[in-house]
């Protein structure tokens, strides 16, 4: 691991569909499921990304074209050097009889979680939602992992609807001991409303605008708790989440304003 800026060449790129690619780098560090790295495109910007898998001696970042940064990533070729700092933060803990809930591109950190849970012989069910089928990349990979449920807003894959439409039924039919979630915060707020009364413990991988990644700038500190998401997060458990007053509300931008 290194907090210092170092650049590494992209070893290979796999295109999954329009505007969705995986970038593979040498496995320059070990990474916990849920930890993130800061990726630097020289001359452009630096942004946090979840590591989505570790395959043999390579780490994978799966990126969807969305803003200027991820669009620029789509132009990158194998051999191009990019800066990587990290991994940063604390990841998921491992539990048996789990339910993994993900939404949209936010499912990236859940792939490595599923990978690691499986390695340690923990059983789990997955429930993944997206706007449309193209957003659920690696759907066949998830298929191979056992019981899984997909929802899409347009019904193009799995059930038409959102994850919270299916969640009560899954909780009723299965003996779930732990819940993991990643994706849009608004999705998680709704999930939280449903799972809090059940008493099942959970962890959620949060996102905020970040600058330093090393716990000093204060940009990603959460209101109500003082938690530095880049150090004490990005994965927070039920207890940590209960102290946060800004969950599902406005977030701070680069200036620090709530927008």
């Amino acid at each position: 691991m290194s907090d210092l800026m170092q650049t590494f060449p992209i070893r290979r790129i796999v295109e999954h569909g329009p505007g969705v690619k995986s970038f593979y780098f040498d496995k320059i560090f070990n990474v916990e499921a849920g930890q993130f790295i800061n990726l630097w495109i020289p001359g452009l910007d630096e942004k946090p990304f979840s590591v989505s898998s570790i395959t043999g001696d390579q780490i994978e970042l799966s990126i969807k074209a969305y803003g200027p940064f991820s669009k620029e990533m789509m132009k990158k070729k194998a051999g191009d050097y990019l800066g990587i700092r990290g991994p940063f933060g604390k990841g998921f803990s491992f539990h048996d009889k789990a339910l993994i809930i993900g939404g949209g591109i936010g499912i990236a950190p859940l792939r490595i979680l599923a990978q690691k849970l499986k390695e340690q012989n923990n059983t789990f069910i997955s429930l993944l939602g997206a706007v449309t089928r193209q957003e659920i990349i690696f759907s066949s990979w998830w298929d191979s992992l056992g019981q899984r449920h997909f929802t899409t807003d347009d019904g193009s894959l799995g059930l038409k609807g959102v994850v919270t439409d299916v969640l009560p039924e899954i909780l009723k039919m299965n003996d779930i001991k732990y819940i993991y979630a990643a994706g849009p915060e608004i999705m998680f707020v709704k999930v939280k409303e449903m799972i809090d009364p059940t008493g099942i413990p959970y962890e959620f991988c949060m996102e905020r605008y970040m600058k330093c990644g090393i716990g000093i700038c204060g940009q990603c500190v959460l209101d109500g708790s003082g938690i530095r998401l880049c150090v004490e997060g990005p994965v927070l458990n039920k207890e940590a989440l209960s102290g946060i007053t800004e969950l599902g509300m406005k977030h701070r931008d680069a200036s620090g304003r709530r927008v």
Binding site: M5, N38, E46, K47, K211, C217, A254, S255, G256, R257
Partner: peptide
């Protein structure tokens, strides 16, 4: 308010 400089903005 000010956005400040782009990242990387803090590097050990």
């Amino acid at each position: 308010w000010r956005t400040g400089h782009k990242n990387p903005s803090i590097i050990p």
